[in-house]
């Protein structure tokens, strides 16, 4: 009897927890789901009131027209471009930002505080009008229509360095670094063989943020990569939306299949890098 009286409120609590998690999940996920609902309807039934809540039958037709029929934008080429640009951005950003963050988190050196505050300050500068001088610079460098215009300037960005510093400050024990030095590792070795593996959760988050940012960057890609063959998916979809003259189904199908990989990547990456206390990541 005693056992029952303890577990009953316990069960209520668990029930309430899952109910609120499920409720939140519904609210958060519904628009994402709705993207696919729109993509699966023909134009005639797309905007019905009350709104469609279930898939229509036109998803395959919309995708088919997008990939095989329309010739206005090279959808698959743009898809590949987006993947390549995002992957290159993520890899370089992870490397340089973890490196910078590591220095600020785990070394004592003259000017460290000033450098940290300086890096933070550059984040505080509103970037809105920078596009004009930045564009001028890219033209002067001859980087228009080159992917590097989107990749290189942000490789060692303040936000990434800041994130990695904050992450590594508490989670990498100094003793471990000293032990590695005694073992004869040089500082680069310590960075790549000790810091990188231990910073995995932080790097996982940075990778996701960077990937999403690169994937969804419209204006930068549109201005810097004007050639349709070398540009990204986001730009191609905007162009297609403009030139396809009311073929919403096709455009929304493109939007949906453009976003889907982000969720899959997140699901896999978060499982790998930032899931539970199972990996035995840090020994205090």
């Amino acid at each position: 009897m005693k056992k029952m009286s303890i577990s009953a409120p316990e069960a209520v609590k668990t029930g309430a927890l899952y109910a609120s998690l499920a409720g939140l999940a519904f609210v958060f996920f519904f628009p994402f789901y709705y993207m696919f609902i729109i993509a699966s309807h023909p134009r005639e039934t797309m905007f019905r009131t009350p709104p469609n809540l279930w898939f229509g039958g036109a998803l395959w037709d919309n995708v088919h027209r997008l990939i095989f029929v329309q010739e206005q934008v090279p959808f698959l080429v743009n898809y590949a471009n987006s993947v390549m640009i995002a992957v290159l951005t993520v890899v370089t950003t992870l490397f340089f930002c973890t490196m910078g963050g590591f220095a600020l988190a785990k070394y004592d050196f003259r000017g460290k505080k000033f450098i940290f505050v300086f890096i933070l300050s550059t984040m505080a500068f509103p970037p809105f009008l920078n596009i004009i001088p930045f564009y001028r610079m890219m033209v002067a460098f001859g980087w228009i229509n080159r992917w590097r215009a989107l990749i290189v300037p942000g490789m060692a960005n303040a936000m990434g360095i800041f994130l990695m510093r904050q992450y590594m400050e508490e989670s990498i024990p100094n003793a471990l670094l000293d032990a590695a030095r005694i073992d004869g590792l040089n500082e680069f070795g310590i960075l790549t063989r000790v810091a990188f593996p231990l910073a995995k959760p932080g790097m996982g988050v940075l990778a996701i943020i960077t990937f999403v940012g690169s994937w969804n960057n419209f204006l930068g890609a549109f201005i810097l990569l004007p050639r349709l063959q070398s540009t990204t998916l986001t730009v191609a979809l905007n162009t297609l939306n403009a030139v396809s003259f009311g073929e919403f189904g096709m455009v929304y199908a493109g939007t949906a299949i453009a976003i889907l990989p982000l969720l899959v990547i997140f699901f896999l990456a978060s499982r790998q890098f930032i899931s539970g206390l199972t990996s035995g990541s840090v020994k205090g």
Binding site: V235, N238, N241, A242, V243
Partner: peptide, 13 residues
């Protein structure tokens, strides 16, 4: 080509 906003933002820049 782009939508109205994108086109004019690019041109303005």
């Amino acid at each position: 080509s782009a939508d109205f906003g994108g086109h004019h933002d690019r041109l303005t820049t």
